[in-house]
């Protein structure tokens, strides 16, 4: 019921998309590691507590042996958790830079993400295309090519927002006045993730509705989509 990357119990279509980027794959592995170790520790402590309260419940009025301390034992149960914690930290240390450090190679695609109360705008500067969400249910769609390195350049026009793509297992706060960016390697699978995009930093009235969809297309389909967007923009210009 609890295991695995989605944590779902009942729903046919889980809310959480499978990992879409290479980094997300790695993060899911780390999550599983921590989850199992954490559950093991929890089980150990709970079993200990249950054992103690059953085995040592009061049976007579005899005063039990008054043990004040046991230095070797105390050192042991300080040292072992310390080792476990340091090992978990080592895992963290090795994996955390995967998304945070700038990529060695130039990205295949740069995406401008602009957050404002309470919508998103995604720009593809090389093609001159911008996708903006409309009022309430008009959720914008972030279209990305599979098997590509994508760099997201983010900015906020007003308050602190947070760009969370659940399929990436990653979010980045967008602080006004501080443009920031991160880079991911999109994986193999094309797919449609209509609920993967969330604003994760409380930003006021319609924070709950500041969502976006994510769609990963095969690279040639993505190029076609981009060309289509350019054409549409031009025809709209021509009309005005």
């Amino acid at each position: 019921m609890i295991a695995g990357t989605t944590g779902r119990i009942v729903a046919a279509v889980p809310a959480l998309a499978p990992p879409v980027t290479d980094q997300a794959d790695e993060m899911d592995r780390v999550w599983n590691l921590f989850l199992w170790i954490g559950l093991a520790v929890l089980a150990f402590v709970v079993v200990l507590v249950l054992y103690v309260i059953i085995r040592y419940r009061r049976r007579s009025d005899q005063l039990p042996r008054q043990k004040h301390y046991n230095i070797p034992l105390e050192i042991t149960y300080t040292a072992i958790p310390l080792v476990v914690v340091l090992a978990l930290f080592a895992v963290t240390f090795v994996t955390v830079n995967a998304v945070v450090d700038p990529a060695d190679q130039t990205p295949d695609l740069v995406d401008d993400v602009t957050a404002f109360q309470w919508q998103w705008s995604f720009g593809y500067p090389d093609a001159g295309v911008t996708v903006v969400g409309g009022p309430s249910d008009d959720v914008p769609e972030l279209v990305l090519p599979a098997r590509s390195t994508v760099q997201f350049d983010m900015q906020s026009l007003d308050v602190v927002h947070s760009f969370w793509i659940t399929a990436f297992r990653f979010k980045h706060d967008i602080i006004p006045g501080t443009p920031s960016s991160f880079t991911v390697d999109i994986g193999d699978q094309a797919g449609d993730y209509p609920d993967a995009g969330v604003c994760a930093e409380y930003c006021g009235l319609d924070h709950a509705f500041m969502r976006f969809a994510v769609r990963v297309l095969e690279p040639d389909e993505f190029d076609a989509w981009l060309a289509d967007q350019v054409a549409r923009a031009q025809s709209t210009e021509a009309d005005t």
């Binding site: 790695e26 993060m27 780390v30 999550w31 921590f34 989850l35 954490g38 559950l39 520790v41 929890l42 402590v45 709970v46 507590v49 914690v85 978990l88 930290f89 895992v91 963290t92 994996t95 955390v96 995967a98 998304v99 945070v100 947070s162 969370w164 659940t166 297992r169 990653f170 979010k171 994760a200 930093e201 409380y202």
Partner: peptide, 25 residues
Amino acid sequence: LVTFVGGGITGIMLASPTIDFHLSD
């Protein structure tokens, strides 16, 4: 004791940025 240990375990998970990038907020 049992409730707090449960919360402590999820705290250790959140202490890892790798995991926290997804779970924060």
